Simulated scan of single mutants.
Amino acid sequence: MNALHMPRVSLRYWLTITMASLFGTNMGDLYAHELKLGIVAGVAVLAALAAVVFVAEKRDAAPRLLYYWLVIVIIRTGATNIADYERHHIRWPELLVCLGLAAIIAVFGALSLKGKSAQGDDTTLPSTGVAYWIAMLMAGIFGTVLGDYCSHAVGQGLASLGLGAVLVLLVAIWQVSGPLRFMLYWVVVAVARTAGTSMGDWVAENDLLNIGLPLSTALTGAAFVLCTLAVAKRQRALAAATA
């Protein structure tokens, strides 16, 4: 992906990634429940949509973040579908699946960070090639599996609070890590995906709010869009200041 289309890694970026996780969790459930395409056709449609975005991105030389965030949501939606299929049909042990996915994230995450150094710009994303998007998909599946496991173990509300606290702590550590921030990137992404799963399900399913999946998807989607606009506005302001 062209550097012009990639956001800077900042606190706003982490907030947007988290909101993308909530939205993708709700969107994935709504997509599967309403369209009923099945795992193969459903993932194939999402893969085709992602391919269209990548083709459009390659042809556009303007500095737009739209493409990056569209692919993030498409991948998160697909990850939710894949993880739910595994949980309901394949039924491998959740913790074993998480360990395997963590290993895959580590491998492809390391490949995406190849060439990064402590002397480099720690606010840039890893290289957004094939390895990056594979790691992002695996992080989404990991987060869905582990988030569901935590929600079933302690309840959606407590899981959301606990995972949210872990995420805040990791982002705080990332914030003070200076040039070593890039080493924490995939750890924070995986935790954001996990917290987003529990939070997204809690918003859609808890009796206190009682808003249901369609409205929850609309609300988390709106919050995600507002976050992306804030990131884009901040990035344009920084670009203008350095011009």
Rank of each mutant, 00 (worst) to 15 (best):
G221Q: 06
I141D: 03
L209S: 07
W14Q: 06
Y185I: 02
K233N: 13
A159P: 06
I72K: 01
V9T: 00
V166E: 10
N210G: 05
Y68S: 02
G196I: 06
A83L: 13
N206T: 08
L111V: 12
T18G: 11
E94K: 02
V231D: 03
K116N: 14
I105Y: 02
L22I: 03
H152A: 14
Y67V: 08
R193T: 11
I211H: 01
G115C: 08
Q175G: 07
G140Y: 00
A51W: 07
A83W: 05
A106E: 03
Y68F: 11
T18C: 02
R12C: 11
A240M: 15
L101I: 12
P7A: 07
T197Q: 14
K58R: 15
A20V: 05
D29P: 11
H33N: 15
G28D: 02
L37W: 02
R59W: 05
R87I: 10
N206W: 09
L96S: 15
G162T: 04
Y85G: 10
A159E: 10
A131G: 04
L37R: 12
A56R: 10
G221T: 08
H152K: 15
V203E: 00
V187E: 05
Q156G: 14
S198Q: 00
L113G: 04
V55Y: 06
W186I: 00
A223Y: 01
L15F: 14
S160H: 07
S112C: 07
L46T: 01
I134Q: 02
C227R: 01
V171N: 03
C98Q: 03
A47G: 06
A243N: 14
L180C: 06
H88W: 15
S198D: 03
L30D: 14
V176C: 12
L11P: 10
Y132W: 07
A20G: 14
N206K: 05
G115M: 04
L125C: 01
L95P: 01
D148F: 13
D29T: 11
L219G: 00
L125Y: 08
T194A: 01
F182D: 08
F224A: 00
A222M: 04
K233F: 14
E205W: 12
V71N: 01
G28W: 00
V191E: 03
L66P: 13
L219D: 04
Q119N: 12
L180Q: 13
T80I: 12
A237V: 10
G162S: 08
S151C: 06
A159L: 06
V71G: 02
L125S: 12
A106P: 10
G212S: 08
S198P: 07
A50N: 10
P179G: 15
A195S: 11
D201M: 02
R12H: 15
L22S: 03
R87M: 09
L111Y: 07
L4F: 15
H33V: 14
V130E: 13
T123L: 14
A51P: 00
A230N: 13
F108R: 00
C98Y: 05
D201C: 07
R236Y: 12
T124Q: 14
T217K: 06
C150D: 09
M6S: 14
G24W: 01
W92C: 04
A192R: 04
A243E: 15
A159M: 07
W202F: 09
I39K: 00
F182V: 09
M183H: 14
Y132F: 15
Y85P: 00
V71P: 07
